[in-house]
């Protein structure tokens, strides 16, 4: 018990790592959502090459470990193009966003697939433009369907984010390792980081479940 309290005492030392993790994941999640919308638009564009390249992109991202994607972008591409040193932080954000975009696009696609075709036909019959159709009719319906799963995807993003500690970004995981070196306590700081991750990811999955319960009330299931 005394040991656990000792481990909790290292939490303040980890806070700047936690902030970095939060910033990276928040930024990556927003960029990923923008990317996901672009992927869905590409898939629905009807232009053959756009559809094919969006599909290939999503397949690649689903099959490639995030560790390898990060290593390719941080070590591989700069070596190939002779760029010298690149910012690990930004590479990390971009890699998480590229990965997250593919998974979030699947969520959005699934949500759109659940809407009936009659909605767009009705909207066009009422003289709504394509933009109005999406803004007024479809998006307000897609969001409640997609939101719980999107929150879940942010949870996955945070679970993947320790990959950045492998490319020298001082996130929560790497900060815990540094504190381990300073305190000669191999377990405490890691345990404290684990607790922080648990509450962070746990609260997001809690929000996801809450949204799911909240937003599906009154709907036939």
């Amino acid at each position: 018990m005394k040991y656990v309290l000792g481990a909790i005492e290292t939490v303040p030392l980890l806070l700047d790592g936690l902030v970095t993790t939060l910033l990276i994941c928040g930024l990556a999640a927003i960029l990923a959502l923008v990317g996901a919308v672009a992927i869905v638009a590409a898939k629905r564009s009807g232009m053959r090459w756009l559809v094919v390249s969006a599909t290939i992109y999503v397949t690649l991202m689903r099959g490639l470990p995030i560790v390898i994607l990060v290593f390719l972008l941080y070590f591989g591409v700069p070596a190939l193009l002779d760029l010298g040193r690149v910012s690990a932080l930004w590479v990390g954000v971009i890699a998480l966003a590229l990965n997250g975009a593919a998974f979030q696009s699947e969520v959005l696609r699934g949500a759109i697939a659940r809407l009936s075709r009659g909605q767009s036909e009705g909207a066009y019959a009422l003289g709504l433009s394509r933009f109005q159709l999406w803004r007024l009719v479809l998006t307000p319906q897609i969001l409640p369907i997609a939101l719980p799963a999107l929150a879940g995807e942010i949870g996955f993003l945070i679970k993947a984010s320790p990959v950045l500690s492998l490319i020298t970004v001082v996130d929560l995981t790497r900060r815990a390792q540094q504190v381990t070196m300073q305190t000669f306590d191999p377990l405490g700081p890691l345990l404290a980081a684990c607790v922080l991750y648990f509450f962070l990811i746990g609260s997001i999955s809690w929000v996801s479940r809450y949204l799911e319960a909240r937003l599906t009330v009154g709907k036939a299931r």
């Binding site: 949870g155 945070i158 679970k159 993947a160 984010s161 320790p162 990959v163 500690s165 995981t173 815990a176 390792q177 191999p186 377990l187 890691l190 345990l191 980081a193 684990c194 991750y197 648990f198 990811i201 746990g202 999955s205």
Partner: peptide
Amino acid sequence: NTPFLIQAMLLFA
């Protein structure tokens, strides 16, 4: 609700 890398590090520690 915890990252795999952290789990592995804890196990090694």
